[in-house]
């Protein structure tokens, strides 16, 4: 972003990578897949790179409002400095925070989740799917992320993206408004769960496995981790894969 600004350019959209997208070994692949799609399509975009910091979502949800606002205000200053208008992100937590919580602190942007962005690109014919890729005809189930679904009522965009791959989309028993959390929201990603009889991601993984799907599609870094751990726990890594939507699209585009 700094480079483009120095050259007097202003990109169409800022890709908010997020901490998982920047540091998590598994999720970096999602960032890379999404960037490859953007490059292939020729979208004018930028990233903040080292100028990006955590949105503050887990701090706010763990109760530390000071820390949240420190992060938020700093991010807003950076984004307002670059006169950012539109933000796309692959993380529903960043999506929710920037979209719904930054306006109260002076950050007003058009924010969309990468599932919505991908859907637009597919609808506009900019992403051309080869079809017949490794997903064709396979059974895929989609796990609704709380911060995309219930929190922001985005249920159809990720499903439209999956359907574009010419696959059989199968729904879990609890889906859309009734979707079961993966167990990582509300800062749970960063601590051990309280005592109980089961971990939430195991419950959700069992439900996903019950659909008989060969792949679980997700649109959130935390969900990806939780579902992947669940599949490992059930020793089903060989049969069932967990993918982010962007990875599936990039694979099908052959990039």
């Amino acid at each position: 972003m700094a480079e483009m600004a120095a050259n007097g350019q202003s990109p169409e959209v800022l890709f908010w990578v997020g901490c998982a997208g920047s540091f998590d070994e598994r999720y970096k692949a999602v960032t890379q897949a999404f960037v490859k799609i953007l490059n292939k399509v020729g979208v004018s975009f930028a990233v903040l790179g080292p100028e990006e910091t955590c949105t503050g979502d887990p701090a706010r949800r763990a109760g530390n409002e000071f820390l949240f606002q420190m992060q938020a205000v700093a991010n807003i200053q950076v984004m307002n400095g670059y006169e950012v208008k539109k933000v796309v992100t692959a993380c529903p937590h960043c999506f929710n925070t920037i979209k719904n919580e930054y306006p109260a602190l002076g950050g007003n942007y058009e924010v969309i989740h990468h599932s919505q962005f991908l859907q637009q690109l597919i609808n506009e014919g900019k992403v051309r799917l080869l079809g017949g890729g490794e997903f064709k005809g396979k059974k895929i189930t989609f796990h609704d992320s709380c911060y995309l679904g219930r929190a922001n009522n985005v249920y159809e965009a990720p499903r439209e993206v999956i359907k574009a791959l010419d696959v059989e989309l199968v729904e879990m028993k609890r889906c859309r408004t009734k979707g079961l959390c993966c167990g990582a929201g509300g800062a749970q990603m960063f601590k051990e769960p309280e005592a109980g009889k089961k971990d939430i991601n195991i419950e959700r993984t069992e439900e996903a496995l019950a659909t008989g799907a060969q792949a679980i599609a997700v649109g959130c870094p935390f969900c990806l981790t939780m579902m992947t751990d669940g599949i490992k726990n059930k020793e089903k890594e060989a049969e069932v894969k967990v993918y982010d939507l962007a990875e599936m699209i990039a694979k099908d585009m052959g990039i």
């Binding site: 990578v17 970096k28 960037v35 080292p50 763990a62 992060q71 960063f190």
Partner: peptide, 29 residues
């Protein structure tokens, strides 16, 4: 959670990574 807060305060991410490594993913692309 306190550890997560600390990471966020010092390295601006809930995980303890160096902020300067934030763009490293781009190398592979």
């Amino acid at each position: 959670w306190n550890a997560m807060f600390q990471n966020m305060e010092t390295s601006f991410s809930p995980w303890k990574f160096s902020p300067s490594d934030r763009f490293n993913w781009s190398e592979k692309v």
